[in-house]
């Protein structure tokens, strides 16, 4: 099928300002939007710049805005967005070149959320720590995050307040707050109870809508707030 592919281009080395370029491409209905970007990059204009790696929705490299919605370019089929496909960088992070944004701020918030298990005790029998399947299920959903930033860059609170830790950092805090093996529970809740933590969430659900993994992020944020409230009440 014939596609009109519109890409928001910007190379600060050459351009005064961001602008739209339009490319006529031919694609199969089952091609991915990433295939369209590759077609342009590999055969029309090698200067087109974007990140990608696995190309099947597990590495989290290629979050972009497709027809106005945060999506992974490798997870959207052409037939679902044709015939006019617009692709632009995610919002809220500085554009470095074309679809490629500066992720450093995003990673800094992830690192600040203590995204690692804290427990230096080893069971006396030298074997694995026991964890029931039910306890494991408490963080199943949030352990699926691929850190693509689709959620955080879809969040209107983050757009207006860049200091807000954002949904991705909270999802990764949740992953450990609800892990029965962890020993830094209170410290984690204090971090999330910060002025720029979970209280900033306005339950707009943009993050849930944007998540390519289908993680129920708003529920995770509410579960964290409930933990904080419970601790404060006791």
């Amino acid at each position: 099928m014939d596609i009109e592919l519109r890409i928001r281009r910007y190379n600060p080395e050459a351009d005064q300002a961001p602008h739209w370029e339009t490319y006529a491409v031919t694609a199969d209905a089952t091609d991915r939007v990433l295939d369209l970007l590759h077609q342009v990059k590999w055969h029309t204009d090698g200067t087109l710049t974007f990140r990608r790696s696995c190309a099947h929705g597990v590495c989290g490299s290629d979050a972009v805005l497709i027809n106005g919605q945060n999506r992974l370019a490798c997870q959207v089929l052409v037939r679902d967005v044709a015939p006019t496909v617009s692709v632009e960088p995610v919002a809220g992070l500085p554009v470095i070149k074309d679809l490629l944004v500066d992720m450093e701020g995003f990673w800094a918030k992830y690192r600040a959320a203590m995204p690692y298990l804290v427990n230096d005790d080893v069971p006396a029998d030298g074997l694995e720590r026991r964890q029931s399947a039910a306890d494991r299920d408490l963080y199943e959903d949030t352990s699926r995050c691929i850190l693509c930033a689709a959620c955080t860059t879809a969040c209107p609170v983050f757009w207006t307040n860049p200091d807000y830790v954002g949904p991705a950092a909270i999802v990764n805090a949740h992953r450990f707050i609800f892990d029965s093996r962890d020993t830094a529970h209170e410290e984690r809740l204090e971090l999330m109870a910060d002025a720029d933590g979970v209280w900033r969430c306005r339950t707009v659900f943009n993050c849930v809508e944007a998540c390519p993994r289908g993680i129920n992020i708003t529920r995770a944020i509410l579960e964290v707030t409930r933990q904080i409230t419970n601790v404060e009440a006791t």
């Binding site: 427990n119 694995e128 399947a133 494991r136 892990d179 093996r181």
Partner: peptide
């Protein structure tokens, strides 16, 4: 021990 979320 490092935190791997194995199924149980």
């Amino acid at each position: 021990h490092l935190g791997m979320p194995f199924n149980r």
